[in-house]
Computed example of a mutant assay.
Amino acid sequence: MTKATETARFLGIILLTYFIFLFNIIPLPQIIQEEILPVFPWWVLVSFGAYSLGNIGYHVYRFRDCEDAYHELMAEIQIAKDDLKTKGVTID
Rank of each mutant, 00 (worst) to 15 (best):
T90F: 01
E35W: 05
G12D: 04
F19W: 07
R9V: 13
S52E: 07
L73F: 13
L84N: 09
P27T: 11
E35S: 03
Y70S: 00
D68H: 05
E34P: 00
T5K: 04
Y51G: 01
T86V: 09
Y58R: 10
Q78F: 03
I25M: 10
I25H: 07
E6C: 06
V89N: 02
T90L: 01
I25G: 04
N24V: 12
G54A: 10
K81Q: 11
A80R: 08
L45D: 02
R64Q: 11
K85H: 14
L53G: 09
K81T: 10
E35R: 04
D83M: 13
F19S: 03
Y70N: 02
T5F: 11
I20D: 05
A69N: 07
I91H: 02
W42L: 13
G49P: 00
D65G: 15
C66E: 11
D65P: 02
A50M: 09
A50G: 06
V89C: 03
A50L: 14
K3Y: 09
I14L: 15
Y58C: 05
V46R: 00
P27D: 07
L22C: 01
V44I: 15
V46G: 00
L16G: 13
A69W: 09
D83A: 14
L22M: 07
L16A: 15
Q78W: 03
L84F: 14
I36Q: 02
I14P: 00
H71I: 11
I79E: 09
L73M: 12
E67D: 15
D68S: 04
G49T: 04
L15F: 13
L22Y: 14
F21V: 15
F23T: 07
D83T: 14
Q78A: 10
I36T: 04
Y18M: 10
H59L: 06
A69Y: 11
W42P: 00
F48Y: 11
L45T: 06
E34C: 01
E6K: 07
I31L: 06
Y61M: 03
A4I: 14
I91Y: 02
Q33T: 08
G12A: 08
L22P: 00
L16M: 13
R64N: 04
F10V: 13
D92Q: 01
T90N: 00
P29Y: 07
G57H: 06
L15Q: 10
V89A: 09
V89L: 06
